[in-house]
Design a protein around this nucleic acid. Structure first.
Length: 228
DNA sequence: GCGACAG
DNA sequence: ATCTTGTCGC
């Protein structure tokens, strides 16, 4: 798929945070999003290193048929991280490699599912927001742990959910994808609403806690890092 | 001031 | 994120 060239990449934390503040107004938080996407891309990055800039990485994009969950396309790229791991600036570590992986897909997917948060972020601009704006595609995040906000434990059954609230606003949802298993944290990125994102998360996570998109991308990026 | 902190 | 054994349960 085609994606515009990235701007000069920030090297300092203050500069990166300013980029987030500048991009945030570009978010579409009003659209309901695709109710029946044909294809969904899962994105994930695996690292070798201690979290510093320059760590080796492999970024994977795996496109699934939303109805059957079969893989219809995939791409993976290896390289070096341009940014250290800093909570709140996580996207600056992953975005360039993920964008390159998306560029190498034969066609644009209908939806992006990111391994991390969207609006559930200190400046309301997590990885899923960043990738959504850069690609123009509907995007949301599914994270394994909470980052900002407070929530009541959701009920014990698959599908039970509770609001993730930060600074008085609902920024996401704790969603149980399996009976009696820790919830995941869903938040909107771009061009999709929270109800739709949670519905799609449940559709993608039938037999495991994490969405099949994330599991496939995790495996592909892991294998590529080991091989390359 | 102290602790917590997506991956 | 990553480093790692055994153990419990379907």
């Amino acid at each position: 798929m085609r994606i515009a060239p990235l701007p000069a990449w920030p090297a300092a934390a203050a500069e990166a945070a300013a980029v987030q503040d500048r991009m945030r107004p570009l978010l579409d938080l009003a659209s309901p999003g695709p109710q029946e996407p044909r294809t969904v891309a899962g994105l994930d990055v695996t690292y070798a290193g201690d979290g510093g800039a320059g760590d080796r990485l492999a970024a994977a994009a795996v496109v699934l048929d939303f109805a059957t969950l079969e893989v219809v396309a995939e791409s993976v790229v290896t390289g070096a991280s341009p940014f250290p791991y800093v909570p709140g600036l996580f996207a600056f570590r992953e975005v360039p490699a993920l964008v390159e992986a998306l560029r190498r897909l034969p066609a644009a997917p209908d939806l992006l599912v990111c391994d991390g948060h969207g609006l559930a972020h200190p400046r309301r601009f997590g990885l899923a927001c960043h990738l959504g704006v850069l690609t123009g595609l509907p995007a949301f995040g599914v994270a394994k742990t909470a980052f900002v906000g407070a929530h009541e434990p959701p009920g014990p059954r698959r599908g039970d959910a509770s609001a993730l609230v930060d600074g008085g606003e609902t920024v996401g949802r704790a969603l149980r994808t399996r009976d009696g298993v820790k919830p995941v944290f869903v938040s909107v990125g771009h061009r999709i609403d929270l109800d739709t994102a949670c519905r799609h998360t449940l559709a993608l996570a039938r037999e495991y806690r994490l969405p099949e998109t994330t599991r496939r991308a995790d495996r592909l990026s892991r294998d590529a890092l080991g091989a390359g």
